[in-house]
Design a protein around this nucleic acid. Sequence first.
RNA 1: GCGCCCGUAGCUCAGUUGGAUAGAGCAUCGGUUUCCUAAACCGGAGGUCGCAGGUUCAAUUCCUGCCGGGCGCGCCA
Length: 604
Amino acid sequence: MGPPPGALQIATMPRPPRRSDAGRVRVQESCPMSRFARAFAELLAPATGLDVDELAAAIGPPPRPEMGELGFGCFPLAKLLRKAPPAIAAELAAAVAPAGAIREVRAEGPYVNAFLDPQIVAREVLPDVVDRGDAYGTLDIGRDGCVPVDFSSPNIAKPFGIHHLRSTVIGHALVRMLRAAGYRPVGINHIGDWGTQFGQLLAIWELEGDEQRLREEGISYLLALYVEFNTRKVEQPELQDRARAMFKLLEDGEDEARRLWKLFRDVSLAEFERVYAMLGISFDDICGESFYENRMGAVLEQLAGKQLLTESDEATVIDLEAWDLGTALVKKRDGSTLYLTRDLAAAEYRHETYTFVRSLYVVGAAQALHFAQMIKVLDLLGKPWHAAIQHVPFGMMRFDDRKMSTRKGDIIFLEDVLVRAVDLARETIEKGAREKGRELPENIDEQAHKIGVGAVVFNDLKNRRTRDVVFKWDEVLSFEGATGPYLQYTAARIASMKEKYGRAVSGDVDFSRLSDPDELRLALAIEALPHSLRRAVDACEPSFVADRLLDIAARFSTLYARKDWKVISEDEPLTAARMLLAASTRQAIVNGLDWLGIDVPTRM
RNA sequence: GCGCCCGUAGCUCAGUUGGAUAGAGCAUCGGUUUCCUAAACCGGAGGUCGCAGGUUCAAUUCCUGCCGGGCGCGCCA
């Protein structure tokens, strides 16, 4: 059942990466499991007889700082040694001699806790961060394996609303995280440019279409037509039949239908492009559903060849009841196709074109059955690579305050949300300048853009993607607390300190000056960033990185606000050491936000 | 009816393969700016982890059943 490993590892499609890879040449070689947990595990291993990896996985942070930085519960050993965990802990603590970064090992109830040496931790973590710069935290776990990521995929006949935000930003973050982890992602915008919806547009178009208005008003006119279709449909149910007929006409290649379809598509794409530009998103591949139009015959032939097709109510279906996946419809009564048919063709095309190691579909959780069916059908077709395909579901976006209905034209445009966020960011900058008597930055537009867009994007990425979200303006437009601007602000403060410092940050400092517990915690948080990337990539969960970034920023902010802790002082060795810590903090935040697709302004 | 997801503080959410006194942000109350950016920081108050069983030395975490919410289940995508 599983894919032959060799077959999936041959990578093709050498597409030039969008971003410069200059800073990302060197990648981390080692396993990103925390090196200190591992060191502790190696210390404990001989005394316990347990495997180092097993041990390292069981090591976690104690609940309170005064209990040390790492803890191991002796419960698994209790059964083996037939002793009470506290007794084992006491024996282990006595038997283990501290070494390296671990300066003390102490038993605490059933736990053996390790206390780390802040100086050694700082020396092992921080110089590496400034040395590697933009590459800090990147991994090579992907082994250059190709991973198509299907995301955003707006429907052209419908407006680009706020509900498209989720797939768009989650998918974009996955692409960037995969690249940072050493994979070769291919961002695919599987535009919904085919299907009955175009029949609907064509049906209403023949009644009242106005090409002049379309060219002038663009997508909002398409929305108006869409709304008009749905309004009229109530009184004229036959309009729906007409829509299906029109789609059939389109699928059969009728000239005028084709021409209009192309016009709708071009007008829509041009407007989508504005939103993508605001978000800083580009795709490697934008073939929409229409691209697979002439590939569906081959799919249907394969299905027929495997005896999978049956007739039911004049439609063509695949019976998947044996796998509790219901019945999958591949051809309508009138012979036209459905999106499952197109997705099967697309899956095959992607496999042929990219020879992927994983193939991701960032599509709402509501489509879970559809993808389960698609994967099962590929399995039945004898495609071993079906196992590499993964639906990455996310919770739907709802609107609390009022009922929203796209069909009635009631919609929040994604572009409007971004514009409002940017406007609010600009106001905040202006207000700050007024109140603190500072001059307005000369690049205020750029700043406001990064902050506003960053707020909207981070707000969507910070929680686990499977949760449903209720759209609320005040949450999307919040710049305080656990938000994108908070992270950007932390980075901006450090940037201005670096400027004041005026020298290059050196990794060669007197580490004995970094002995504060808060400094130790910060260094450990920075060290944990690559681990969060690994987990995020494995689980397709950007919030793991977002979470870690908030932790890093919070730890730095705590230090920063302390009266007794200033980075820049008369004491030059101390300044150099703290500058290294601060610069590492900024680098970690900038890198992590970059993986999430969020820019960082140098000033705020 | 069947299936999938979810239920943790007033609100929005974390909780890393079961483990020590369940953590943040917002809101609220009280503090912090002659000193590197207050979009920040510190402190207070606030929780029967939906309910009931079960497994386990140990359950917010795993299992079962209820209750409550979301989504899906053939000619839309």
